[in-house]
Design a protein around this nucleic acid. Structure first.
Lengths: 248, 248
DNA sequence: GCAATAGTGTCTATTAGACAATATTTC
DNA sequence: GAAATATTGTCTAATAGACACTATTGC
């Protein structure tokens, strides 16, 4: 097949964002309400067109900043901001009824934000529990409200990526503020996985993995009880051996 | 930002393929020679435009068939054919000098093919050792021939995906024919990782993991020595505990 | 017999997970 | 003191990795 750049089918390319955080001991995703057709009035993932002179990561970072005010840092997690990585690309011919749109989905992990309604955008936006969006919140799994387009599928992929990736990487620290305690990090794992972990074994595991956590020197009592050491994320991004998720 | 489908920057969308196989105890990738500018005469990954009515997985499967004659099966690996999965998407504004092209890279894993030069395409195509393409084949790492466009980066991502994914999944069986011995599967791991594994511990590990391998009943002596049992890939796609790659 | 590969058994150092016990705070 | 959380220590069952040994073929 000759590679003919002058005769190609035209596509629109967008980025969609799965922005996850941990609030009130639950994994939450950012959703925005659609103001226009199609799917008017339904909740959707934030996103938008990739501009003509912009690469995909920049477009995702720009959308993230527009929606949440967060800056993205793709590699180190020592500066404040959100972790951002590419997730997967969705391009079914009829995923958007108006035209052919290919969406490059990205996953962003953010610490709990002070503002309850994030972003300065005019559209209404909210944090919704991931389990509720995915239909696991109610006893009746059928009563969930679907997201617009194929965003349920994208959200599910993002949540699963986050759940599996914190097993073998230090990504869980992306849900924490720059300084955090071992207990706070453990509550992140518990919220993301939806399980209870043994605090003593967890403590020994994370403090015993070289390069995972480095003490910042301070302590805090913000969780009550005995003061806990404050840590920052260390340089190690891959955990070996991994933190094992208790079997489902 | 209003979502305006009538005023979007136009993109071309392509699929590029990282097709990997194991030949003569080495991990090899399929490359094709470019017949036209840009990068004329250089080696590149196979790929092509996504058609107007085609989803991304179908486009990748079509390209794979055109290049290798293999059919793709995305899930089960009990039917002959190649494993195919989406890898990542590349969209730097200047990755193609002619126009704005977003490429959705896919990873295909195939058993060793009988035909030395695969595909019926008029372009010349060949299997090249992955290490040589990535610049690890020679003692002089600088002397490698780069691939066209950003295909070196895409190839590196595909190879790394394959190397890491056979740790915790049964994906290595995608490099084997439908029936294979434990020793043949071990040689796949050794070729992909570039390490030697203990045959006895490997045997105990893979035969002791429920659902990984199912005996097909037959035996073969095609490797010499004592006849070996033949197996097929079992239903288990996730290995728990994983097959650990010896530390680098 | 010799060489080659397949397959089983055994030992040891390490580790995951259960859980006792102690430390330090707020109320 | 009671309650809460942090942190350390100890025990046990399971496991990864090293490696001895046996089995079955072709030459």
């Amino acid at each position: 097949m000759p590679y003919d750049p002058s005769a190609f089918p035209p596509f629109a390319v967008t980025v969609d964002l799965v922005v996850l955080t941990v609030r009130r001991h639950a994994l939450c995703a950012l959703v925005v309400r659609r103001g226009e057709a199609p799917y008017q009035g339904m909740w959707a993932l934030p996103g938008g067109f990739v501009r003509a002179d912009e690469d995909l990561a920049s477009a995702a970072a720009r959308e993230l900043t527009e929606e949440t005010g967060l800056r993205a840092h793709e590699q180190d997690n020592r500066t404040p901001g959100a972790h951002l990585e590419q997730l997967a690309t969705y391009g079914d011919p009829d995923r958007d009824p108006r035209m052919r749109v290919v969406s490059v989905a990205h996953l962003a992990l953010a610490p709990d934000l002070p503002s309850p309604t994030p972003g300065g955008d005019a559209r209404s936006a909210r944090w919704a529990q991931a389990d509720a969006l995915l239909g696991f919140g109610d006893s009746d799994g059928e009563s969930k409200t679907p997201l617009a387009f194929d965003h349920d599928e994208i959200l599910a992929a993002g949540v699963e990526r986050a759940r599996s990736k914190i097993e073998y990487s230090s990504l869980a620290t992306a849900f924490c503020p720059p300084e955090f305690t071992v207990g706070e990090l453990r509550r992140v794992y518990e919220a993301v996985w939806g399980v209870a972990l043994d605090p003593r074994n967890f403590h020994r595991k994370v403090t015993g993995t070289p390069g995972f956590l480095v003490p910042s020197g301070g302590t805090t009592t913000r969780q009550g009880g005995r003061p806990a050491q404050l840590f920052r994320a260390g340089g190690a991004t891959l955990l070996n051996p991994p933190m094992l998720r208790p079997e489902a």
